[in-house]
């Protein structure tokens, strides 16, 4: 009230209503900082490829200058211990003869499943159902890689995609 009596007649006449002055303002600066950091994460993790790559802990693909985008197909991972995984499910070991035979039957089954799935999705003319993605550890020898390709070839796959990590150019 004392504040009111200190004002001149002109000021009293044109003074803004008190109710409109007591509005708390939300400080958006901090919220914008959080939003920008979240945007940064989204941009860095954005992948235009339809293929979602999630290597297992003991599978380290080599670095490469390739820029070819991955396409949808089944993913086989092989660790440096020659353990073979299908979508993170362990199938066996490449050194074991028994596991090799089991791998062949699994690959054949997956080929048929992929064929049915892609026929519905892409039509009969598309040959994408013959593709298979390999995520191989960089220390894997060619002998194992060759074995894997032969098993895949016998199962019907004829288009192999080897997943690599991007190499930053100097």
């Amino acid at each position: 009230m004392s504040e009111h009596y200190q004002l001149s007649i002109y000021q009293k006449k044109y003074k803004k209503p008190v109710s409109s002055q007591d509005v708390d303002e939300v400080n958006l600066t901090s919220l914008l900082d959080v939003l920008i950091i979240l945007l940064f994460f989204l941009l860095m993790s954005y992948n235009p490829s339809v293929l979602s790559i999630d290597p297992l802990k003991n599978v380290n693909p080599p670095f490469s200058e390739s820029l070819e985008m991955g396409k949808e197909a089944i993913i086989i991972q092989v660790s440096s211990d020659k353990e073979v995984f299908l979508e993170k499910r362990k199938l066996g070991n490449l050194d074991s003869q028994r596991d090799e035979e089991a791998l062949e039957s699994v690959f054949k089954k997956e080929f048929e499943l992929q064929k049915q799935k892609f026929l519905k999705k892409f039509g009969a003319k598309d040959e994408q159902h013959k593709s298979i993605n390999f995520i191989l550890d960089g220390n894997l020898k060619y002998e194992q890689m060759e074995k894997l390709m032969l098993i895949a070839s016998k199962s019907g796959f004829d288009n192999y995609k080897f997943v690599v990590r991007s190499k930053s150019k100097d």
Binding site: F41, M44, S45, N47, S49, L51, I53, P61, S64, S66, L67, E68, M69, G70, N133, E146, M149, L150, S153, D158, N159, Y160, K161, F162, V163, V164, R165, S166
Partner: peptide, 15 residues
């Protein structure tokens, strides 16, 4: 915890 890796591929035909 996050690692920012981009993955690409090398295509090969039947051996």
């Amino acid at each position: 915890s996050v690692q920012f890796f981009e993955y690409f591929e090398i295509a090969s035909s039947n051996p």
